[in-house]
């Protein structure tokens, strides 16, 4: 018995079972909190991404976009492989639910690691209304400047029907280009590519999504 496989490995087996049970407990207890954290991070960004002048005009009120998180609906597209957030503003009047636009997720390779972004689009997905970087591991002090408002705000107002490009110097107005971060051209280019791919993919699916609504 002492030299059999079980005699040799009983401690390893016992520990594996005990640790496995402990980790299952941890997953049951903290798993929902972790999932909620991920959702919160996405939903916290949504009002900022569709916050534009048009929304204020429609409601006739200053842009206090409270209730956006609660009113937003998740819409699967691309055979359920992706989820778009159909963003609504819920005013005091229950019937006054205003469709502000869409928020979609984009993901792709950056300089150091995967970059994940959220892109805000208007109702017809013709214009980019905002961009925020959800996840990045780019070089601190250089590539991670893609998380700064100065960089992200450049995407607001760009034409979603055309690819977004970049330039090392300040781009001409109306050129549908952004200025790349000095010393971090690859990170800037990666964000443009991710945006272009995600927006084109979503725009191709938009007619089908609109048809479902009607």
């Amino acid at each position: 018995m002492k030299n059999s496989s079980l005699g040799q490995a009983w401690l390893v087996l016992l520990l594996s079972l005990a640790f496995g049970a402990a980790l299952a407990g941890v997953q049951v207890g903290w798993g929902p909190i972790i999932e909620q954290n991920k959702r919160n991070k996405t939903y916290d960004q949504i009002p900022r991404l569709v916050h534009d002048v048009e929304a204020v005009d429609l409601t006739g009120k200053p842009a206090k976009l409270s209730g956006v998180k609660e009113a937003t609906e998740e819409v699967p597209y691309d055979d359920g492989k992706s989820v778009a957030f159909k963003v609504f503003w819920q005013g005091k009047d229950p019937a006054g639910k205003v469709h502000l636009g869409w928020v979609i997720k984009g993901k792709g390779n950056g300089y150091a690691d995967v970059i994940e972004v959220l892109i805000g689009l208007d109702r017809k997905a013709e214009r980019i209304t905002g961009l925020t970087v959800l996840f990045n591991n780019e070089t601190p002090g250089l590539g991670n400047k893609i998380t700064t408002e100065k960089f992200q705000d450049q995407f607001r107002g760009l034409d979603a029907a055309k690819p977004v490009g970049y330039e090392k110097s300040a781009p001409a107005p109306g050129s549908n280009r952004i200025q790349a971060i000095s010393g971090a051209t690859i990170s800037s280019e990666s964000v443009c590519n991710i945006v272009n791919q995600a927006v084109a993919g979503f725009r191709a699916q938009l007619p089908a999504l609109n048809q479902k609504d009607h």
Partner: peptide, 9 residues
């Protein structure tokens, strides 16, 4: 794994 999950939560 416990430390990783704790931080994530």
């Amino acid at each position: 794994t416990i430390a990783d999950k704790f931080l994530a939560a």
